[in-house]
Write a protein that binds this DNA or RNA. Structure first.
Lengths: 189, 189
DNA sequence: CGTCTATTTGAATGTACTCAAAAGCGGTGG
DNA sequence: CCACCGCTTTTGAGTACATTCAAATAGACG
């Protein structure tokens, strides 16, 4: 069942009885997307947080010159959202799309707020998630200043070992913040 | 009273009755530090999260060449910690020190865990804090790749308007990730 | 007042980008 | 099943943004 991965993830942090599990699952919506399909466009309000049960998503920003900057990949077992937009329910700046056919579990902002009220320990679960993600982005924001492109490439390989030979070099370039041309030269040097 | 700023901050997110307030305050420790005094060194375990009631702290990383990279400043009303170390209670990679004489409220990891158990709605408070901080570091990590030094300088001015004419250029350079020499040239161009 | 650190300025260098063009590769339709 | 089209990757030459090293000046603090 595609809920199992999520329940297992949650079980690492909080204990749910059968009733709570069912209640939680009733808030979720299953969604299937095809490769290249968008789940969120710039200017959209991100109404649901997404948990990837199979496949892989990515969140990216498009700058005024048409350059993509990838904020994160979300392989199987990862949550993804435009956090700014999801929290504030205002239009966001990110695109989210599928790198391959994928299956997702969605929880809407409204249902998540209900969940926090009805099963408060989910505050704990999502607090721990947010804290871990925070630590990771804190590191990355400093690494993006102090590391060279080559070092950032190596960090990428460590962070997403399953993606290295699955995604294109262009995607990796957009994640580490270099041009595809430069990454190609770097890997052939 | 120096607790007021913190209680006001908390009141924006959760409602506490008088008893809960007192219980919370009993977990806190007041600490005064002088300018340049360190609160955390690289390799230390960060045992307490710190709330700045007056003054200003900063968290920074020192690389192998002796360059400082400032992760964040914490003026009055901000929380600061080495989140990685605080969460895991393992040795961290950050230094935290005072930019001027400052007054802090500390909550130890152990007391915070007790607090979560005894007044679970603090999970909500710290979840919201972590989420906001996450959004801010997500933006910064991409800005550090796609913006030029001049644009990062402008973002810095927006984020910390009270610090611009209080801290040295060298500090700003260490935050936006350029050499002091380059920042000087940039500002005189 | 003297010392230490921060800032300024300049010349040479390096890392990564831009633009351009060719080669490779994958998917789609005839 | 092959040919074509579009996108990715490669390669090269010229350029830009930021660094390094060095030295002079200015400022802050005890």
């Amino acid at each position: 069942m595609n809920h199992d991965l999520l329940l297992a993830n949650i079980a690492k942090h909080i204990q749910l009885n059968e009733e709570e599990k069912q209640h939680f699952l009733s808030f979720l919506q299953v969604k299937k997307v095809k490769k290249k399909q968008h789940l969120l466009l710039e200017g959209d309000v991100n109404r649901s947080a997404m948990f990837v049960t199979s496949g892989c998503l990515r969140a990216y920003h498009l700058d005024e010159n048409g350059f993509q900057y990838i904020q994160q990949f979300a392989p199987e077992g990862w949550w993804i959202a435009d956090m700014y937009s999801f929290i504030t329910q205002e239009p966001g700046h990110l695109y989210i799309d599928a790198l391959c056919d994928s299956e997702l579990l969605l929880i809407s902002k409204a249902n998540l707020e209900k969940l926090y009220k009805e099963i408060p320990k989910f505050n704990h679960y999502f607090r721990v998630l947010a804290e871990k993600s925070l630590v990771s982005f804190q590191s990355r924001s400093m690494e993006n200043l102090r590391l060279t492109a080559k070092e950032r490439y190596e960090k990428f390989c460590l962070r997403y070992p399953t993606l290295i030979d699955f995604i294109s070099q262009k995607q990796i370039a957009a994640y580490i913040g270099v041009t595809p041309e430069f990454l190609s030269k770097m890997l052939h040097a």
